[in-house]
Each structure stands twice: as C-alpha cells, then as structure tokens.
Nucleic acid binder design. Structure first.
Length: 566
RNA sequence: UGUCCUGUGGUGUAACGGUAGCACAGAUGGUUUUGGUCCAUCUAGUCAGGGUUCGAAUCCUUGCGGGACAACCA
C-alpha cells in the first residue's frame, strides 16, 4: 500500500469529483468506504485490475478502507478455487482489504427477512410463470410488458409460498419471488424483476442450508447497505440497474430511521484491450478447450497470467493509472501495457547475457585455455545494483541474427571484415566463417584486439555495434518461451459471424531449446525478472527447475532496427 | 422504431464559460560499450449545424455516430 497522503489538489477522475461533492455536502457522516465485489466464477483479469486499483485507490486517497466482498449468489457457477485465486491476485497487486473477506452469502438471512418485509408491503409476490412465459410477458424495450396472473395474490398466500420455497417444497424453477414494480416501465429492469429463484445445489459456503438464492439486483445494494459502503462503483452495463438499486434501498429503508450511510452506485467504462478477449466466459473456454495451458497461461490477460508472464504489480498499477477512468467506451492499445512493464523493469531488472539462437564464434588469437573474468554493470539505470564478473574465453556464442554474410550498409553488427564490440569485453573483427551444406553459418572466426578490453584506453575506440555473448564452455542451457499476442485481430470477439477462436495466433508461443545463458542465471528464482541484454525482459517460469531452466519472455526491448526494416 | 449513456489528435485522458494540456503511438536529431534508457524537437484534436454569451470543447437545441437495456447470470 502506498503511504502517500491524500492529494486533494491533484485532479483525478470524475468519480473522485463525485466523492468530493458528496463529502462537501456532508453525506454519509463524511465517511468513505468502497468495495471490490467479484463473483467467484473465474479468475481475475486486467479489467478487474482497473476496478481494483480504482476502488482500493480511492480508499487510499481518502484515507479510508475498501472491502472485498464475494458476490456469491449463484452456486451453479461459483467455486472455492476462484475465491482463493481472487484473494491471491488482489494481494499480489499490492492491496489489502478491510478485515476479513466478506460474502454476500453472509447476508442471506437478512436478505430473506427484507424480502418478507417487501411481501408484507405488497411490493413482492411469488410467481409461477416459466422462464419462457416471463420472457413473453416482459415486453420489449419499445413495448410495455403484461402483468403476471400471480401478481395480485393475497399477502397470506405470498408469505406461505415464499416460506415453502425456502423449505424446499418446490423444484428448481417452479416458483420465483418477484418485486412488484411496473411492467410498463421504459426500463426493463423495473418490470417486476426476479428477487429469488430456487436452486437445489449446495453452495460453496452455505452448503445445503438454502435452496433459494437471491438475484444480483436484490443482493448487491442491500449488501452495500449492510456493509455501509458509501460509493458502490461498477461498470457501465449496470447503469440501467441503478433505478432498481435505489428502489430496493428505498423499500427496505422505508419506515426505518434514517441511516447514516446510504450507498450510491456510480458507473464507469470498463477496460477493453485490443488483440485480446476479456469476457470470463471466453477465457474459460480457452482454458477448458486446452487452447492455453490454464488461467495463468502467460498469454492470458488474467492477473495470474500477467504475473507468470513477468509483469510486476507496479507495472499493472501504472497501467491502471494511465488508462484513466471515464464513462465513454474505450479500447486501450496493448502497447500501453507493454510500455508500462518496460518502464518498470528498466529501472529494476538486472542486465544479463543470454543467447537465444546461438552460433559459435571463435577468437582465433585468444589463448585456448585462458579465461578472463570481465566486470559488467548490473544495471546502468541503478548504480546501487553494482556489478559482477562474467567469464570470457576463446569460444563464445553470439546471436545468429547478429551476423550477416552480406550485411546492408546500416547493419551495425558482425559480417566479413566488420568490427564490433563485445559488451564488457573486447573489440573483435570478423576474419572468416564456415557454412554447412544448407548454407547455415556454423562457426564464425574473429580476432580480438587485446588493447580494447573494457576500461582500457583503447576501449574507447568507436565501433558501430555492441553484441551480447556468453562464453561457450561456461554457458548453461535453458528453454526460453517466446510469447506473442494470442489473437491476430484487434477485436477478436467483435465480429458477429466469426467465432473469436478463428483469430487465434498460431505463433503465440514459440519454445526455444538450447538457449545459452551466462552462469549466474543457474540460481535464478521463479518469477525473478531479468533483462536479457539487447533482447527484452524475461522471467523465470514457475515450472523452472535447476536442472531444467525455463524463462518466459515478458516483453521485448524497443527495437528501432527491426522497426526500420519493416 | 423506445428509454438511458456517450462523442476532444491514431489510442487513451485533462481543461468544469476565459491560451485545448498530458501520456502512449508516430517522425526527426543528440547522447550511449544494450539499435535499450535518457534528452530535445516535431506531427496530430473539440462529430456537424443552429442558438445563448464580450467569450463555448464546456450551456441550450437539432441532427449524426458509438454504446447499453428484453438471463430464474453478475
């Protein structure tokens, strides 16, 4: 958690302005309490991260708290696995909720009592229409609906039936409890919405205590009220629910003493990212069909996927800050997310040498048995990270891409007769090379200039390029997984006639074996991040073992050479 | 042919009746033992029409564009 004090002068988004206004008007006894209310039916994704940063960020800003509340009103879809992963992800992001995690299911008894209150007020009734009949009677956005024949049951009958619903006397779908509002409302959600339905399925927390479960609309606002949430922040699609949110609160608060806190719903536009899908349903499909390795596959936009990919909590928070919060639909370029992780890792990641596609280079005038230890800076952006030594010898590996038999003019790397600097070592000159029968370069022969060792006066000589390298006999092997975007279309789920899976990128994962790393990487711990010099940021995969190192590519370095050659 | 929300550079987001700013992306130059970083410069915007006003991105109005809403999901 940030320890920064409230910065009221700093302009934030419109929600802060609304809160400031409520504060100025003295609402809610000048208290602020937010909540993050996930349904435990899937893993959290980057869109949730935006909401988490918003809700917890507001709490921090106003020196207030934020609750974690699981919206667990549908046992058909919800699982403990998700409850656990959600908590892990929020903690990883760096936020701490107030007290213990809360659950809407904790409030089932209270909700039930309030439902009886509504029945007694003539504001709710037990209906026996089938889902099809209800749909048929609901009308359309342009036509009013019809009233249910069960709408005007007697109080006694409603009370009796609702009790028997709870007792388990009816099968799933046989009866429901509906609010009695207005079947002609221009807002579909006010056309006698369902409050309770019968589901004979054990709940992950309440077990088989209940067989009737409250719907979202009847649950959310009341849960906010119970917890004394002042600002209930949600995404735009709930905007049309707001009148209902307020209606339910009006009903349960009628005839009661004026409460100190009356929660207020405020909506903002959800995050959309191009080249990805964000719906939990589609993410679940990718997992279930084995298209990705799991919810935490590094290509997934889930928080656990980003974590495994090498994203830092700081970078995700920076991203949430940069995308802003407003009420208009938006599509954020995935490049901004990549910018954020580069920005963060640039300052923190140790620079190491790794050759992903190695080709052997022999320094012909370097003694065969000699090993020189070269000093190299751990991070030029952070002097406090110090330096280390790396072994240099007659045979090294360099990147295959760093040699061209017939290089173009602006190729500042190695080619016949060309000179380059080996990072932290010597300037070398290419004298010869060897090819196999397929034309592949197998060995490159160079001479080195002993006067150009880093630190020596002659080392300042200008050469066009600097290459990374590893000593062949000291190098350790590793597997490196290169990731690209999962989808090739900017909006994979934005085409009515095309399934989003049609746009899957067949090259979203490339696994490289036999990559050559400098020796110190043998001790790298899972999730540790490094900059592979001149290549990008990589992290140790969670499955990496000391005898089988696995690195994930988080993001490449900006590459103006590659860009210029497009 | 309903109700509600929403239109600011390519993408996001500020400006709350008084000089349209910031970030990313893009371009150019400089520094550099990472073709990274960093620094400098540049490109590019108020959906359209009408009205109110000394003055409108901002208020009103009419169009037009985009989105949401008819799950016993949340």
């Amino acid at each position: 958690m940030s320890s920064e004090s409230p910065k009221n002068s700093e302009v934030k988004n419109f929600i802060y302005q609304e809160i400031d206004r409520d504060l100025a008007e003295g609402k809610n006894g000048k208290k602020i309490l937010t909540r993050f209310p996930p349904e435990p039916n899937g893993y959290l994704h980057i869109g949730h991260a935006k909401s988490i940063c918003l809700n917890f960020g507001i709490a921090q800003h106003y020196n207030a708290a934020c609750n974690l509340r699981f919206d667990d009103t549908n046992p058909v879809k919800e699982e403990v696995e998700y409850v656990d992963s959600i908590q892990e992800d929020i903690k990883w992001l760096g936020f701490k909720w107030e007290g213990e995690p809360k659950y809407a299911s904790d409030y089932f008894e209270q909700l039930y009592e309030w439902a009886i209150k509504l029945i007694r007020k003539g504001k709710a009734y037990v209906c026996e229409l089938t889902p099809e009949e209800i749909a048929a009677q609901k009308g359309t956005p342009t036509e009013p609906g019809q009233e249910s024949p069960y709408r005007n049951r007697s109080l006694a009958e409603n009370l009796d039936l609702f009790q028997r619903m709870r007792n388990g006397e009816f099968k799933d779908g046989e009866k429901i409890l509906r609010a009695k509002i207005d079947m002609a409302s221009s807002n579909m959600h006010m056309r006698d919405p369902i409050m309770y339905r019968i589901i004979h399925k054990p709940h992950h927390r309440t077990g088989d205590k209940w067989c009737i479960y409250p719907m979202y609309d009847y649950t959310h606002g009341q849960s906010d009220f119970i917890e004394e949430i002042t600002h209930s922040i949600c995404t735009l699609e709930f905007e049309v629910h707001r009148p209902l949110y307020n209606w339910f609160l009006d009903q349960i608060l009628e005839d009661e003493a004026t409460p100190e806190v009356r929660p207020r719903q405020i909506e903002f536009a959800r995050l959309n990212l191009n080249y990805t899908v964000m719906s939990k349903r589609k993410l679940l499909e990718l997992v279930q069909k084995g298209i990705v390795s799991g919810w935490d596959d590094p290509r997934m936009p889930t928080i656990s996927g980003l974590r495994r990919r090498g994203y830092t909590p700081e970078s995700v928070r920076m991203f949430a800050e940069k995308v802003g919060v407003a009420r208009r639909e938006n599509v954020i370029d995935i490049g901004l997310l990549e910018y954020c992780v580069r920005e963060d890792l640039n300052k923190r990641a140790m620079r190491v040498n790794a050759v992903l596609d190695p080709v052997k280079l022999i320094i012909t005038n370097f003694p065969e048995d000699k090993v020189e230890m070269m000093e190299t800076i751990n991070n030029p952006e952070d002097e406090s990270m110090g330096s280390r030594t790396i072994p240099f010898s007659r045979e090294i590996y360099i990147e295959r891409d760093d040699f061209m038999e017939e290089p173009p003019k602006k190729f500042f790397r190695l080619g016949p007769g060309l000179e380059v600097r080996l990072k932290s070592a010597y300037i070398i000159k290419c004298e010869d090379f060897k090819k196999d029968e397929n034309g592949h370069i197998t060995e490159i022969y160079c001479t080195y200039d002993p006067e150009t060792r880093s630190g020596m006066p002659q080392a300042d000589r200008k050469v066009k390029g600097t290459l990374h390298w590893v000593s062949a006999s000291h190098a350790i092997d590793a597997e490196v997984r290169l990731y690209d975007r999962l989808f090739m279309n900017e909006e994979p789920d934005g085409h009515r006639d095309v399934d989003f899976k049609e746009y899957l990128n067949p090259d979203s994962l490339k696994t490289l074996a036999g990559c050559k790393l400098e020796p110190m990487l043998a001790d790298a711990k899972p999730l540790g991040s490094f900059q592979f010099q001149r290549l990008g940021y990589f992290c140790v995969d969670k499955d990496s073992k000391s005898d089988r190192l696995i690195f994930n590519k988080t993001v490449g370095l900006k590459d103006s050479w590659a860009k210029a050659n497009k």
